[in-house]
Design a protein around this nucleic acid. Structure first.
Length: 470
RNA sequence: GCUCCCUUCGUCUAGAGGCCUAGGACACGGCCCUCUCAAGGCUGUAACACCGGUUCGAAUCCGGUAGGGAGCGCCA
């Protein structure tokens, strides 16, 4: 639309390897990737693993695998490298150290010797007296001697950013429009932890700028954090990326997406047999209005991604809609693809037969049982069908089966002559007796796949007036 | 508590003062097709949170109310 929206965008996804890929993160990763792709820019993957306690190699491997499964690839980052390497923040310590000294030298930051307990208490007190819980600034005014004394006592300081007074921080949010915040509402915040590692506000902002990111797309939860990062960048003389904050992904009840809403990670959907393209199509339309409603092959998504149509309101993740895309995805697979997706080594004729009746691999398992195993007990409606047909019908059916085993066409012809029934009245009781259900793949081929004695048994079972007891 | 954000059919959304008796998609109902389901075709139900204001005219602008959410962490 506007000229800026079409300039090559450098975007990024900056996850922490502290768990498997969450749906909300997958969505912002997708949007960022698409934004870069649509404008001919670059997409960077950066690993924010400064929290050594929670970051684990196992999670990183999962993260990369989840991204790969979704088909979200990156132009710079782990495994590829690039001009801004390294792309793991745990390896960028030396760089951060230089910037910390620069900030301290310029008077933009100061060591803070307050302990976690002291800070906790201070916040509690502030809350109780109805004040916003902000750092009181205790260590900001320490003299050189006072600092030396604390060092001498063996206290290890954190580094705090000295938030300037009376400043208004304004920026143009690409999703929310113009924003502005007062620096007086913001307390001095920690940019380096006691253990010397860089804190989120710092390394996240600094790396975005240093890596040449031009469009930061992230969740709404970061909107009020943005002014801190702006001040930090200003103190360092680094340029600001553009920011865009998309509405959060929430559960069907509108509360933050959590376990009780069911599956919330990409991995869970993958394990349940969802297709990556299906998940992508759903995510693509959550908090985003594309110009077309129908199925999009992942490769076509960049052309239909509209950054100007990113949503401010939270979007509910409704699995019913994902199911729709899943059906679309299954319909679009080749026979061989469906076969390997089901992953059970089914014969091609079986796959061909049930492919339109299956949206998840679990559905196929049910049909496998229909063909070769036990039938589940009949439902109320199915019992109705059976008793309406009557035992005589099934006795005739069993007899007809003996004349034309496993041949539905012949069997129905004979049965039609003997009973005078036709259409649904003829087929439905047969379907229920043979499959236990009123719907499913074509009955003829289904019957051919069944062992003849099994089919015969199912028919004669209902000839003995067993409709009620099942 | 303070600061900030959000609010159109059940869901995802279109809509940037008249084109809106509010459009599309999913879901749901009906009809057609069909041995069934699905697919396909046709069709139906269903929303501007509320109250004021500005205006000839408001879903769209302004103010307030309500309800949701986020941030204020040595988590990211």
């Amino acid at each position: 639309m506007s000229a800026t929206a079409e300039m090559p965008a450098v975007t990024r996804f900056a996850p922490s390897p502290t768990g498997s890929l969450h749906l909300g993160n997958a969505r912002t990763a997708l949007f960022s990737r698409l934004w870069a792709a649509r404008t001919g820019g670059r997409f960077i993957l950066r690993i924010e693993d400064t929290d050594v306690e929670r970051s684990q190699p196992r999670f990183l491997a999962e993260l990369l695998a989840d991204l790969a499964w979704l088909g979200i690839d990156w132009d710079e980052g782990p495994g590829i490298g690039g001009p801004s390497a390294p792309y793991a923040q745990s390896e960028r310590g030396a760089l951060y150290a230089r910037l910390f000294t620069q900030l301290e030298a310029g008077g933009f930051a100061y060591p803070c010797y307050c302990t976690a307990e002291e800070l906790e208490l201070s916040r509690k007190l502030q809350r109780m007296s109805g004040k916003p819980p902000r750092y009181a600034g205790t260590c900001r005014v320490l003299t050189r001697d006072q600092r030396a004394e604390r060092e001498h006592r063996g206290l290890k300081p954190t580094l705090r950013f000295a938030v300037p007074a009376d400043r208004i921080l304004s920026f143009q949010d690409s999703v929310h429009g113009p924003q502005s915040f007062a620096s007086n509402d913001i307390g001095d915040f920690i940019i380096r932890r006691e253990d010397g590692t860089a804190a989120f506000f710092f390394c996240n902002a600094v790396d975005d700028s240093l890596m040449g990111v031009t469009r930061v797309l992230r969740g709404d939860d970061h909107l009020t954090n943005t002014p801190r990062q702006l001040m930090l960048l200003d103190a360092l003389g680094l340029r600001h990326p553009g920011y865009g904050h998309v509405g959060l992904l929430v559960g069907v009840d509108g509360s933050p997406l959590s376990k009780r809403h069911g599956s919330t990670s990409v991995r869970e959907f993958r394990e349940r047999g969802f297709l990556p393209a299906a998940l992508l199509n759903h995510l693509f339309r959550l908090g985003h209005a594309s110009d077309i409603d129908g199925w999009l092959a992942p490769g076509a998504m960049p052309a239909h991604f509209r950054p100007a149509h990113l949503g401010r309101a939270p979007a509910r993740f409704d699995e019913a809609q994902l199911l729709h895309w899943q059906k679309e995805g299954v319909e679009r697979m080749s026979l061989a693809e469906v076969g390997s997706w089901l992953g059970a080594g089914d014969p091609p004729e079986f796959v061909e037969l049930l492919r339109h009746n299956v949206t998840l691999p679990a559905d196929a398992a049910a049909w496998r049982k229909v063909v070769g195993g036990e039938l589940p007990p009949l439902g109320e409606s199915e019992r109705g069908v059976v008793s309406a047909a009557g035992p005589g019908f099934f006795a005739a059916a069993a007899a007809a089966f003996d004349q034309a085993p496993s041949d539905l066409k012949q069997l129905t012809r004979i049965l039609k002559d003997r009973t005078g029934r036709k259409g649904a009245e003829l087929y439905m009781p047969l379907r229920v007796a043979l499959t236990g259900l009123q719907h499913g793949p074509e009955l003829g081929p289904l019957l051919k796949l069944m062992p003849p004695d099994l089919a015969r048994r199912r028919l004669s079972h209902f000839a003995r007036n067993h409709a009620q007891d099942s």
